[in-house]
Write a protein that binds this DNA or RNA. Structure first.
Lengths: 128, 128
DNA sequence: GCTTGACCCTGACATGATGTCAAGGTCCAC
DNA sequence: GTGGACCTTGACATCATGTCAGGGTCAAGC
């Protein structure tokens, strides 16, 4: 299967598939005489795994760990669980930080007349 | 004032101060004979404005707009308000997306025994 | 006046995930 | 055999930020 098909089947751009190959996240597939990469179903499977993990907010390093856990049939599920919970905690912190910004902005906007006058609590706050 | 003092006073790293100068977000300060940048209080003020806006999640382009609105004493506060609300809406979308990921991870982790057995719903989900 | 350590200068390379563009080779259906 | 779709590599860009190297400057203490 060509890289274009693998891309469509996995939801990862051709660009990123080549990138993941370069950084060692996916093994280099065999090449045809033309030099074209030739992907198997298993390769696409791996790519989709990566796409799903990425969509859950895992970073490249964590995805590499998940991949090795995935292919290790003797691994303990506790390792995977710990990784997922660490990721969740991280997301929780990010959510809290963004939510804080959002509330601050909304509070400031509520205090701002939003009319033709230049007086503006939002700018005043930035000047503090 | 040297760049180090300006950095400490504004909370922006020296590296980023120089960067903001290069991209035109702050005006190039005068130089002393030695070539050292020489910052005024007004410069530091501007830097702190930038730091505050950055902490509220504004991007460089938006900060540039805020800076021009700030120095325009005839501007309408409605423009600033619109910018703040757009930013808040954007943050709201990001928060929702991250919160979604977080919930999914926690749900998956709850279904995972987290023991020595290899069986793991988290990995199964990634394989879908 | 000299030394020393703290400070400053520029420029370059790196990150991470991703896009785009260019110049060239390949494949297949007609 | 030709055209259009596809593939190759490599390079450059983004955004905010860090770090490092190689070199100049300043100020305090001796």
């Amino acid at each position: 299967m060509n890289i274009g098909s693998a891309s469509r089947a996995s939801g990862i751009s051709e660009r990123m598939i080549r990138h993941y190959e370069k950084i060692g996240l996916v093994p280099p597939p065999p090449r045809r005489d033309s030099g074209y990469r030739d992907y198997s179903e298993a390769d696409v499977h791996r790519l989709r795994f990566i796409a799903n993990a990425r969509d859950l907010g895992f970073g490249i390093d964590e995805i590499a760990t998940l991949l090795s856990l995935w292919s290790d049939h003797r691994r303990a599920s506790s390792e995977v669980k710990a990784l997922a919970l660490a990721r969740a905690a991280d997301l929780g912190r990010k959510v809290a930080a963004l939510e804080n910004m959002r509330r601050t902005l909304i509070d400031l906007a509520e205090q701002c007349h939003g009319d033709d006058r230049p007086e503006c609590p939002i700018l005043n706050r930035l000047v503090d």
